[in-house]
Every structure is written in C-alpha cells, then in structure tokens.
C-alpha cells in the first residue's frame, strides 16, 4: 500500500505546531497503524531527520497509551479498538490520512503526537482508591457480591484511561473517564468507606484540571475502545449529588 500521511509536528509544549506531509510506500495491509509509523520513523532516522514522537506501550489494546486522532476519530475509523489494534487493511492504497494529537486544554502536547495525560492521574489520586488494611488477603468468598454488580463494576473497570472520551467530546469533557473510575469502586463493598468523599473530590479535581462539562451527545461512548457506557455518567451524577446532600463535611 502507498499512503500520504498528514501528521501534526510540534517541537514541544511551548512552540506552535504544523502539519507535515509524508509519503509512505510498500506498507503491508497486515501492519498495525503503529507499525506503519515505525516504518516511517526508521526512514526518517536513516535520512537524518527527527522521527515522529508518538505514545505506545503494550501494543495489544490494554495500556491506553496510543493516542492518535486519525481522520477525525480517536483511534481511527473502527469502533472498539485502540490505535495499535487498527490495521492498515482499514484503509485503501492512495488514501491521505490525517493524524493529530488529542486536543484538549487539559492534555497539553508534549511533542508531535504525544500529550500529557497526568491530569487523569491527579483525578485518580483525588479519590479513586480504596483503603485496605495490611495483613493477609482475606478469603475471596468472605465478601458476598451480586453477580450483576460485579459485572457492572468490571465493565466500568475496563477503562484504560486512554483519553479517547476527552478527545472525542466537543467540550473535551472527562466525564466518561471519571464516572467509570467512580463507578468501579462505588458498586463494590470495598469501595464504600470512601464513597462520598470520592465522588466529591474526583469531580472537583476534574473541574480544576480544565475539562469541559457534559452535553450528553454520546460521542465518548461511541469512540471508547472499551465500550464504557453513558450509564456511568448518570451514576456519577447520582453519586455526586447524593454525596453533597448527605456528607457532613462543609465549609
């Protein structure tokens, strides 16, 4: 396959970026999108040019690092996949493919296609944890959990924190991410100790980081590689309003 790539190049956070065009030849349709970038980068290095910086780690769809906005969609045109799981057979030879970084005030560009997603880490550390006593792990069956609850919590926990929801949202909102992280713990007995504080603090941190509000367009759910449901955002709303109405902490 022969393709034309229109790739965002940006030296660092403080400089302005621009698109550059690259022609790539002899790409196999069995290659992943990232492998196609590897081929291009090897050529750039051999030519003595600066390779394109992009995030990647596991290359099997579970780490959430590969964050390319391809032809107007996070992780490209296919649904339910990350960029590493996107294969070149999804394109035609001769196509021009536009590749951009995630665009959000809360995700500043580090270089080229890599963005700083530590705002997600700070939302997690604001309340996305459980207190566990030290000592031996207790017997798994000592905590009865309904199958339906366990399934729902697991579905929310499937979030890999890739940021596609933010990238897809017209408001660059992190509601799907934050709500999944609140839900996975709120649904389980282990998460009850910090339940009220968690919803309040994580939502507050999400606002501080500069993510937008939710318009319920559903773009995040449609683009999420892990199929995280909008039901989680409704649950977060309930958790948050329930917490502020009942918690005894107030200024």
């Amino acid at each position: 396959m022969n393709l034309t790539l229109k790739v965002w190049r940006q030296k660092n956070t403080n400089t302005e970026g621009n698109f550059e065009n690259y022609d790539v030849q002899g790409i196999s349709e069995d290659m992943s999108f990232l492998e196609m970038f590897d081929v291009l980068n090897e050529r750039l290095i051999n030519d003595g040019k600066e390779p394109i910086a992009f995030d990647h780690d596991c290359r099997e769809g579970i780490c959430g690092m590969c964050s390319m906005y391809i032809n107007g969609s996070p992780h490209g045109p296919n649904r339910g996949v990350t960029t590493c799981q996107l294969h070149m057979r999804s394109f035609k030879s001769g196509d021009t493919i536009t590749v951009e970084p995630w665009r959000a005030a809360a995700f500043p560009v580090i270089k080229d296609l890599t963005v700083n997603r530590s705002s997600f880490d700070r939302i997690i550390s604001a309340g996305g944890f459980v207190s566990v006593n030290t000592g031996n792990a207790q017997d798994a069956n000592a905590l009865p959990i309904a199958k339906e609850k366990a399934d729902e919590a697991f579905a929310a926990a499937a979030c890999i924190g890739c940021g596609a929801c933010v990238a897809a949202c017209k408001n660059a909102s992190a509601m799907l991410f934050t709500s999944a992280k609140i839900s996975q713990l709120a649904l389980l007995p282990q998460g009850q100790a910090e339940r009220e504080m968690r919803a309040e603090k994580m939502v507050a941190q999400m606002d501080i980081e500069g993510f937008g509000a939710c318009t319920n367009t559903g773009a995040c759910e449609a683009e999420c590689p892990k199929g995280i449901s909008l039901e989680n955002i409704a649950r977060m709303n309930r958790e948050y309003f329930g917490a502020v109405l009942s918690s005894k902490e107030h200024e």
């Binding site: 032809n71 665009r103 017209k170």
Partner: peptide, 19 residues
Amino acid sequence: ANKKKRPVQYAVVSKENST
C-alpha cells in the same frame, strides 16, 4: 466555558459519533 476547553481545534472531525 466549554469552548475554552479545546484551544487548538482539530483539522478533521468525524461527525459519525453523535447527532
């Protein structure tokens, strides 16, 4: 407020993910 959350706009935006 929402408009300010994406200071640099995308060059290409697919409109298939929402109405």
